[in-house]
Simulated assay, not measured.
Amino acid sequence: MTYVAFACRILLFGVFLLALAGKVRSRTAFASFARSITDLRLFPRKVSRAAAAAVIAGEVAVLLLLVPPRTAPLGLAAAVLLLLAFTAGIVVALRGGRRAPCRCFGASATPLGPLHVVRNLILAGTGAAGFAVMTALPAAGWYSRRRRRGRGGRGDRRGPAGRPARRPGRPLPHRPAGPGRRPSTRRPQVRSPSCLF
């Protein structure tokens, strides 16, 4: 299961890295991306450039969170939310009859279509699967450690046949004779006191 989570992280990291590099490689690339958001008419013209900057900031945040294992679940969750937001924007634009060229990975003349929706949903599903695996692994590890601690812990040590194991320096607990068990007739050995003179 660890390999599944790692593969999801690598895939989304590569996708978001390519998307970010295509948008910020030059001023012209960023201007084209901002203009594509304006052409979709999802926001007012004055807000479109700020929305483009917010998208780039979100992609940077996803990349930074995906690298450390401790923050990788947050990075996967952020990637899923960002991809779902992209998908919702594309669906709204398509329903309004607006099919501007997709600038998700930089310069491209391909207009938006259902293929972009399917692609984003697949990537979002990949991120959701990785998030589910990474959040389930610590719980499973905690449960297995607790079971091992309960079986072989210091307070539950058992010897052969389920008897308590003898600890160094401590005698075995006295067990009363049960039915069918003959009481011991062995007399305790009394040691003579050592000579004090």
Rank of each mutant, 00 (worst) to 15 (best):
P188F: 09
V80N: 10
R49Y: 09
L11Y: 02
T28M: 10
V92H: 02
P173S: 12
L65G: 02
G22R: 11
R146S: 05
T28A: 15
R49V: 10
V190T: 11
G141V: 09
I122H: 03
A31K: 08
G169V: 02
S144I: 05
R182N: 05
G153R: 03
W142Q: 10
L196E: 15
R158N: 06
A107P: 07
P69M: 06
R186H: 08
S36C: 07
L11E: 09
V4I: 15
A72E: 12
R99H: 13
P111T: 02
T71F: 12
R175N: 01
V62L: 06
A51H: 04
V62W: 00
T126Y: 06
R41K: 07
A93M: 03
G58D: 04
R157Y: 00
L66M: 04
A88F: 12
L196I: 15
P68C: 07
D156Q: 13
P168F: 13
R163I: 01
G58L: 01
P171K: 11
A77M: 07
R95C: 09
V62N: 07
I37M: 00
G150D: 11
G22Q: 07
P179Y: 03
G130N: 11
A57M: 10
P168E: 14
A140M: 09
R45S: 08
G141L: 15
C8L: 02
S144Q: 11
P111L: 03
A161H: 11
A139F: 14
R154E: 12
F13C: 06
P101E: 05
R163G: 06
S26C: 03
F105C: 05
A53R: 13
V24P: 00
A52G: 08
R167Q: 14
F86N: 08
A54F: 04
G153Y: 02
R99P: 00
L17S: 11
L84W: 14
L65M: 13
A124N: 06
P171F: 01
P101C: 03
R157Q: 15
G152R: 14
I122A: 14
A161I: 00
R9P: 04
A52Q: 01
V80M: 07
Y3D: 15
G125F: 03
S108M: 12
I122T: 14
R157I: 12
K46I: 12
A72K: 05
R98V: 14
R170K: 11
L196P: 09
G150C: 00
S144L: 14
R146A: 09
S144W: 15
L94S: 01
R9K: 15
A7F: 10
F13Q: 07
S108I: 03
G58C: 06
V60K: 13
A61K: 05
T185C: 12
A31D: 15
A124Y: 07
F6I: 15
A109V: 03
A51Y: 00
R154I: 11
A139I: 10
R148F: 14
G14E: 13
R145T: 11
A61V: 04
A161G: 04
R146M: 03
R170Y: 02
P101M: 05
L81A: 15
V60Y: 01
L11R: 09
A29E: 08
S36G: 08
